[in-house]
Structure formats: structure tokens, C-alpha cells
Amino acid sequence: MNRLVILLLTAVAAVLVAVLPMLVGPYYIRVLQIFFFSAGLGVAWNILGGYAGYWSFGHTVSIGIGAFTAAWLGMIFGAGSGPWSMVLPVIAGALLSGLFALVIAYPLLRLRGTYFAIAMLGVSQVVAELVNNVSIFQGGIGVFLPSPVPSGMPVERFYYYIFAVVLSLLLLISWWVKRSRFGYALLAIREDEDTAMMLGVPTERYKMAAFVLSAVMVGLLGAIYGYSLGYFTTYSVFRLDWSLNMIVFCLIGGIGTLMGPVIGAALILFLTQVLLGGFLDLHLMITGALVVAVILIMPGGILRTRWRLPGRKPARGGAE
């Protein structure tokens, strides 16, 4: 695709996103709002997992830190109202999430593959437990955030626009990363970390940068999500299924690609919210089943799949 086509498509998408709330009902606006949020999570996870090859199984920890930081700030300094009142807490949520990542990055990024993935799972469990059980964090009883929605505006429309803007911002960052020196370093790290070092890539520094950037992005989304909930407890934001979802979006759409997470999120949310919206009890199962199916059927994701032809299976694992 050439530049003009992409530019044109982007413009059309922007106009569509802007006018869509005038055309569809509140339920679908809410679904779209969740879609933007979810796609944003996927895009953020993809920076670390897709570009750098460090699969985190505990990224939900950044959602939690972002949301709770915003709420704590509101409680300490007193919350204003109106859309501008959320700017500072949201930025603080993103930054604290990044700071936390910076602190744990040094030991955790020494681990590779499976060990890193599970260590992150552990981090998310431990932080959730601390937020829940240590009373000053108030995760057990829950925290409030005042509504920043301007009077007269429907709530779902407000968050729809905010999440749309944030998703665009995250996509822009991801696009920039992918085509920059930073992105090349991450790809080299993913492909072969030792060789990357041998080619003069300061791998430690870049891994850490990707980890922190990814955490800041998720923290940002988490803080806004906290506002959209208004009241939440530990386990409404430290949710294990989200850690899985971020991976799933990328896997389905195409891991390491720019738009893969967005496409994956669109597909999953269409399935779970629109087609199976009534089966709330089964969401965990549906997501799980999708992951398993996708990995078994098209390991490269939609954007990367060369459809498997019979007899062209990669030779692995030996004869039957």
C-alpha cells in the first residue's frame, strides 16, 4: 500500500469515528468504547511482547496501578469536576505505572522466555494482593473517582471520544517506535538477544525502555478506565483475564504488527459483546477457547497467516 492510500484510509476512519456516536445507540457506543480501550491495551502490550519478544502474562498490573493512583490522588487532594480535573490524576497514573515498571525492570528483564512471562504473572498477583489487603491502599473496600463528564453530555459518548483519542495516540507511538532505531533494536532483541548485543545494540537499555513505555501506556488507559468505572475495588481492575486478553488480541491479529492488536480486539469484542453479549458467565471460557483455537489453527495471526495447505505443515516433533 502506498502512502496516499494509508493517509486516505486514516482520514476516513477518523471521520467515521467522529460521527459514529450520532448514528448508533448508546449500547453500541459503549461497546465501541470498550473496543478502543481493549485495542489500546493490545497496542501497549505489543510494544514489549510483539516488538521485543518479552511476553508479559501480568500486564494487568499496570491497569490496576494506573486506576488506583488516579483514585488516591483524588482522595488526597480533593477532586475537582469537569473534564480537566482528570488530566493530572491520569498522567500521574501513567507515570507511577511507568515508575513501578522501571523499579522491577532490572531484575525481571534478566529473565527470559517462560520465566519472564510467569514472573510477570506473579508480579500482578502480588501487587493485587497488596492493594487488596494493606488497608491504606483501600483496594478491599474500594475507591471512588468523581465523574468528569460535562453536564449534558451522555457518559458513554464522553468516554468513547476519550478512548478514541488515546487509542490514536498509542497507535501513533507504536507506529513511530516500529519504524525508528528503537524499533529495530527491539526486533533484534526479539530475534536473538545475544547477537543483537554483538552488533552494538545496548539491549538492556532498550528492553527497559520498551517495558517502561508499555507500562506507561497501559497505566494511562487504566487510569481513564478507573474514571469510567467511578467506583472500583482491587479485582475490578487487577483482572487476570485482561492479562490474557492483551496477548490474545495480538495473537489473533498478528503479533508484532502495528494494526494486529486492533484487528484482534475488534474480532474478540464483536464475538463476546455483540454475538454473545448475553452470556456474561461464559466470557472467560470464550476468550480461553479463542486463544487455544487461534494458536492451534493460525499461529501467525490474521495479518501474518499464510493459510496452511495440506502437506505443507512445518516439520516438527517427528513422525507420528
Binding site: 532505531r181 529495530y184 533494536a185 526486533l187 533484534a188 543483537a196 552488533l199 552494538g200 545494540v201
Partner: peptide, 10 residues
């Protein structure tokens, strides 16, 4: 791309 990694860093 392989070679470009070397050229970008190094």
C-alpha cells in the same frame, strides 16, 4: 533488515 540493524548500531 538484518544488515540494517548492524548499520544502525555498531
Amino acid at each position: 533488515e538484518n544488515v540494517r540493524v548492524g548499520a544502525m548500531f555498531g
